[in-house]
Design a protein around this nucleic acid. Structure first.
Length: 380
DNA sequence: TCTGGGGTCCTAGGACCC
DNA sequence: TCTGGGGTCCTAGGACCC
């Protein structure tokens, strides 16, 4: 008997090692090597007189940068995104280190999204390197092909992959399932350059054996708490009593955990949302003290406020709530914000409001990070 | 060898108003 | 003068995601 086709077909597309792959297009001689993207401007490749390029390596890296992306060759050494570059250097000193070039990645991001839109226009942006796509109403999505009951939707996803490859030279991985939650999980199942179609029938064999962290929305804290309660896998979570989950995680999150483990998710693919906030922040090379480093701190503060103002104006927004963020040497983070009578978008007003916020913070400890934020945005 | 920068959403308490 | 319930706004912190 043929399986019942799902009500919706949602795809999650994830570009493979995106930043690193964009860099490999620019520097093809690094193909196959361990390459790590992250850190500041300093380690830009230099062109030698003989025309070859010289790259920095991780060896001897000193600073506070983290890995934003690593090639699969670098991941083989245990390097992964979010890891401090100092630690990465200890694991793979010979790996090439390249600075992040967001301009370049944003340009490539626009290109791959346009390529997807040619095939399937219903797209939800999930950042620079991933999207959800609603395939439900595309021609052929519900058709079988030969003995493959889901051949139609599989062919559509393959078309998308081919189009992305043609437009960018980059590979991506796609998961196609009845909802966003499962699609996100499925896109990781055959990475890189993979295509995975799953239905609810595949839940017990393909999804339940996986760790709870694979669910988008279960982070380090929730996973640790689940582990302490004896739940490691999604299957174990699925077997837990909803009432028991609510007791331990609260009504809202407890219920959601139960639904997620059953692979249930009704969220629609949302094509466009207005921004909620815009912010700029910076971590200092060395911790600064409010009194001893007053001038330097003030200059950075003004620069951040100016950057937020520029971002707001460029995109045509003003913010009614101005906030600051400080992180101290012990990594404790505090925020303060202030809602103004009128939305503002100019650097002076933002700097002034941010200054009022700063007065409400106890500045005994040295500071490692300072940030300025505009929220409650209104379109101008 | 301490842990970036840009976001979203949720919770919870207090102020304030009806 | 006391009690109280509901709604909204503001603020602070925290979890999580890319």
């Amino acid at each position: 008997m043929n399986p019942v086709p799902p009500r919706r077909w949602i795809a999650h597309l994830d570009m493979d090692a995106f930043y690193a792959s964009v860099e490999l297009l620019r520097y093809p001689e690094l193909q196959g090597q361990a390459v790590v993207i992250g850190g500041g401007r300093r380690h830009q490749p230099t062109l030698l007189p003989d025309g070859t390029r010289q790259f920095s390596t991780l060896a001897g890296y000193a600073g506070r940068g983290v890995v934003t992306t690593a090639t699969y060759a670098a991941r083989d050494f245990g390097v992964h995104s979010g890891m401090g570059l100092m630690k990465a250097a200890a694991l793979a000193p010979q790996a090439v280190l390249l600075p992040t070039d967001f301009e370049q990645y944003r340009a490539m991001s626009r290109r791959f999204k346009a390529a997807v839109a040619e095939v399937a226009p219903l797209i939800e942006d999930r950042g620079i390197d991933e999207i959800y796509i609603d395939l439900t109403h595309l021609p052929g999505a519900q058709e079988a092909v030969g003995h493959d009951p889901f051949g139609g939707v599989r062919a559509l996803a393959q078309d998308i992959r081919n189009n992305v490859r043609r437009a960018t030279g980059l590979t991506c991985s796609i998961g196609v399932t009845p909802n966003k939650l499962l699609a996100k999980i499925a896109s990781e199942l055959d990475k890189p350059d993979g295509l995975t179609v799953l239905t609810h029938d595949d839940l017990p064999t393909r999804v339940w054996p996986m760790g709870v962290r694979r669910i988008n929305g279960i982070g380090p804290k929730a996973a640790a708490k689940l582990a302490a309660l004896g739940l490691q896998t999604i299957g174990q979570l699925a077997a837990a009593e909803p009432r028991w989950l609510v007791e331990h995680f609260g009504r809202s999150y407890g219920r959601w955990l139960h639904e997620a483990a059953q692979g249930r998710d009704d969220r629609p693919v949302e094509t466009r949302g207005e921004p909620v906030s815009m912010s700029r922040e910076t971590t200092f090379e060395n911790d600064l003290h409010a009194v001893r480093d007053r001038d330097e701190l003030g200059a950075i503060f003004t620069r951040l406020a100016t950057q937020v103002a520029t971002d707001l104006q460029r995109k045509g927004y003003a913010g009614r709530t101005i906030g600051i963020k400080l992180r101290f040497e012990d990594f404790k983070t505090v925020t303060r914000d202030l809602t103004l009578p009128q939305p503002v978008a100019d650097a002076g007003a933002i700097r002034h409001a941010a200054g009022l916020c700063l007065k409400r913070v106890d500045l005994q400890r040295r500071i490692r990070l300072l940030g300025v934020r505009a929220g409650s945005l209104v379109k101008l």
